[in-house]
Simulated assay, not measured.
Amino acid sequence: MSLAPNSETSALPVGSATPKPLRSDGQEARTRLLDAALVLFADKGFAKTSTREIALAAQVNVASISYYFGDKAGLYRAVFTDPRSNPSVEPASIDHPDQSLADSLRAMLDTFTEPMKNGVAMQNCMKLHIREMLEPTGLWQAEIDDNIKPAHMALVQMLCRHLGVTQADDDVHRLAFSIVGLGMILHVGSDVIQAIRPALIGSPAAIDAYAEHMLVAALSMVEGEARHRQALSSTAALP
């Protein structure tokens, strides 16, 4: 007999509603906890959110949190890194020697646009990341070290290859940050986009169209950097 708490109906938080039926494998209980915790952690932060109210919102036994995640910190970590709303980019998908510039840039930009199709979940994920920056638990620094920095360096290396640059300089790093900024505005500025031009991100098809526009802009940035470097070289070669 399984000891997983996914099918229990006792020991629920006081005042909770009758729990919804759960899948026998426990996956639904785990998913409910992730979804409920995302909303609560995004709204209230880690310290002010209790395991009891997470279990109540998820309509599962409070013991499920320790069973699936160990403790509240483990649940918070799982929510923060949940690939459904916070996918990571594999550096190899950006810096691949046999891949075209357009395909490399598309692989990177897709990590910003695809999560947008998750709607409210993505908005809550963005709120959670901002709250983590303001009220750090250590996960944001780990995100920078483990995911953001490797992806940035892969982008820089890829740009160096296509620009014919042997050693990355400040301009290459500026270019990389500028390209990433095209995707970041979708998340940081989603409320502004909704207020001014909501149709731009109002459907999966609209988000795909936005992604293609970002790709064109990113390619133009790289082309502009190449022209800039060529102009500097020509000037330096003048007597």
Rank of each mutant, 00 (worst) to 15 (best):
L3A: 06
D25A: 01
A236V: 03
D170M: 10
L109P: 01
V216Y: 02
E223S: 11
A58H: 02
T31G: 01
R77Q: 14
S16T: 06
A176C: 12
A237E: 14
N147D: 06
M1C: 15
Q194Y: 15
A11K: 10
G183I: 09
L128W: 02
A206H: 02
R229T: 14
R161S: 06
T51H: 06
M133N: 10
H187S: 08
A209N: 15
L175Y: 09
V89G: 04
E132N: 12
L22W: 10
P83H: 02
L219V: 08
V62D: 01
E90Y: 02
R23W: 10
Q230S: 08
I185C: 12
P115S: 01
Q123N: 11
A231E: 13
D110F: 03
S178R: 15
T235V: 04
G224K: 03
P150Y: 00
N61T: 08
T49V: 00
Y76T: 04
V165H: 09
T9Y: 03
C125Y: 07
Q59V: 01
K117D: 03
M122D: 02
Q99V: 08
Y76K: 00
A73E: 14
R77S: 14
K149N: 09
E90M: 06
S220I: 06
L22P: 09
A205D: 10
G138W: 05
Q230F: 03
L128I: 06
M1W: 14
S66E: 10
T51E: 08
L33N: 07
Y210W: 14
R131P: 05
A73S: 12
S16L: 03
H213G: 05
R197I: 15
L232W: 02
D171M: 08
G26T: 07
T49N: 02
M133A: 13
Y76H: 05
L182Y: 01
K72G: 04
F69T: 11
V39W: 04
D208R: 05
S66Q: 13
H96A: 10
A199N: 10
S16A: 09
C160D: 10
L34C: 00
A142I: 07
R227E: 12
P21Y: 05
S10L: 11
N147H: 06
E143Y: 08
T81M: 13
P97Q: 04
A209I: 09
P204H: 13
P239A: 15
Y68S: 08
G183W: 05
A154E: 07
G202K: 09
E28G: 12
M108S: 03
A47V: 05
G202Y: 12
I54T: 00
V188H: 10
T9K: 04
S10D: 14
W140Q: 09
G181D: 13
L134E: 03
G183Y: 07
M122A: 05
I65A: 10
K44M: 08
A151H: 01
A209C: 08
L134K: 09
Q194K: 14
R84L: 01
S178E: 13
A107N: 15
S100Y: 04
I185M: 14
M1P: 15
A36K: 01
K20T: 15
L182F: 02
Y68T: 12
A237N: 13
I207D: 11
T81C: 13
D95V: 09
L22K: 12
R30F: 00
H129S: 11
H162L: 05
V172M: 11
E212Y: 02
M122L: 03
S7Q: 14
R52H: 01
K149D: 10
K117Y: 03
